[in-house]
Amino acid sequence: MKERAEKTSPSLSRRRFLQVASALGLAHLLTGSEQAQNTPNLPQNPQFKAPGQTRHLPRVQAAYTFFTLPEARFVEAAVSRLIPADDLGPGALETGVAYFIDQQLQGKFGLAATWYMQGPWQQGTPEQGYQHPFNPQELYRLCIPAIDMHAEESKGQVFADLSVSAQDDLLAALEGEKLEISPLPQFFLSTFWQILYDNTMQGFFADPVYGGNDQKAGWRLVGFPGVAAAYRGVMEAYYGRPYQVEPVSLADLQAGAALADESGHAIHRDLATGEILSVHPESFKHEH
């Protein structure tokens, strides 16, 4: 304790701890000299440094932890029609989007953790937005069996077992608010469609760390480089011509599988030649 107290310049990690603890109102637990040090001290100059690498991230074995098996079959079938595999490359099914949705539902999105969910409840105008106590978990859990029930009773099979053209027809009806499933109000189905659609797009294009966009297939489809590089000086060199690089993900950088410059920005490689395309610009280096 004594040795710590005599330090005049606390370590970065100590400073961070003191700031956060103090911010949380725990200053009374700190020693007198720690309290003296805990005046927050935001850095006054940019201090760039090579980011430290974290090294022991596991390769996760994926499994559905929210969906029941019938729900998983429905979602796999639906996302594979929304973003199908075709000549342009894999679709949502092949890239893990159903698993992405399962994991999103299992977390704070599924529980509507940051939505205002206090009553009283009443339906408003369309301009007033979502006014229902069901969170996304409950919407999936309610609407999937409703649509399967409808498919089974009208077509003899649940959604996942229908032909792809019958699946497309059913999704188009859902999108166009033409699907009627008594006694479910249309409102639930239209809300479910919007969330399913948004979640599918998010899964296909979000960083692969969330379970979708496997092999960065969504990014490759559109030519998006993923985690940003420093494009200063590069942007004007590519006016009007494509900047085509091997996309870089959060995991690539955290695990050191992709190169980063001294500020932590990705260093891109040309997709065709493997040549390094962007480097941290000279103008950005300066004395501290």
């Binding site: 985690v227 940003a228 959060l250 955290q254 980063a260």
Partner: peptide, 23 residues
């Protein structure tokens, strides 16, 4: 909450469209 440029906004984690733009 308390936050500062480094480490809270550093790459790569700040370049996460799902976390920051959508959620």
């Amino acid at each position: 909450r308390y936050r500062q440029t480094d480490p809270d906004f550093q790459p790569p984690h700040i370049h996460d469209e799902l976390r920051y733009h959508v959620r």
